[in-house]
Design a protein around this nucleic acid. Structure first.
Lengths: 156, 156
DNA sequence: GTTGACCTTCTAGTCGGCTCGAAGGTATAC
DNA sequence: GTATACCTTCGAGCCGACTAGAAGGTCAAC
């Protein structure tokens, strides 16, 4: 099995060595084996786990939330924990589904806002210095359709 | 136009008065008018803006990212800023689309992981104390299909 | 055998995003 | 007129998630 030193794992997963040591300290990842001289020695399972963590992080999950998932990930092969695991995963999937819906609705809202711009009344905080006298002749430049494809439409 | 005091706005938007003052301090929301005695006096445009901010926050955007969007939101009625606005919104929509894709893929990954559980080899960190001798007879409980509907499938 | 890049532990600092408390002013009900 | 529930500013503190630095050990190349 392949073995990696901390900076190599860092390169493969996008974390710095400091961050990896920090994650180990807080129990997010299991401490790897050590070389005779004390160096951390990671394997492919660590890289896989950390890739999973990196993805969850990019999606805005907190380390605490990720910890629940990562524990499932780490212990999932154990038949003894399979029932708890199912609950964690089902709950998380449900949450992800709701996030997807809200993200989709948010894209809609921004799109609608943009299309609606010209018709909006100037709010309270828009003083005369703002210089926003509506110019009737000005055309609202349409948003590139590409920007919203995939974020628009069905929310489930 | 309706007027609200700080705690009322807080109730309507889900922020505490402290947080609202903080947002004003960092320039995320414009300072509202003041009553003769110095009380902050918000209107519907503030409530609308803060509802927008709350949604963006739930989706994991940083206050800095939200600031860009909120500025667009606040100044969007000004014809002078329409071109910059278009760029901000288009970029943000693109980002939202990518997030949607990744979120979807993440749901897939978790689902696949779950289905794949029984076949995974025990990783390095799983010692004998783990007690995970695979019991061939044990059935993998299927995930409730409901949990993934909407997170599964097409990623664009 | 020394250079330089890497590793170790440890402690302290940073940054974003609030959150609390003190000290005091305001508004409304009794 | 006083209780109490709100509001004000200001400064300090807290939590999550790192990040930097000190002091020292390891390893491969020259």
């Amino acid at each position: 099995m392949a073995e990696y030193r901390i900076s190599e794992v860092g390169e493969r997963t996008g974390f710095t060595p400091s961050t990896l040591r920090y994650y180990e300290e807080i129990g997010l990842i299991p401490g790897p084996r050590r070389s005779p001289s004390g160096y951390r020695t990671y394997d492919d399972a660590h890289v896989e786990l950390l890739t999973f963590v990196a993805r969850a992080k990019r999606l805005g999950l907190s380390l605490d939330e990720i910890n629940g998932l990562a524990t499932a990930w780490r212990t999932g092969h154990c038949s003894t924990t399979r029932e708890q695991l199912q609950q964690v995963l089902a709950a998380k999937l449900h949450q992800i589904r709701r996030r997807l819906e809200e993200l989709s609705a948010f894209g809609e809202q921004i799109d609608a806002f943009y299309r609606d711009l010209a018709g909006r009344p100037a709010p309270d905080w828009c003083g005369p210095s703002c210089g926003c006298v509506p110019e009737e002749s000005e055309e609202l430049v349409p948003l590139p359709a590409e920007a919203l494809s995939g974020a628009r439409g069905r929310t489930n």
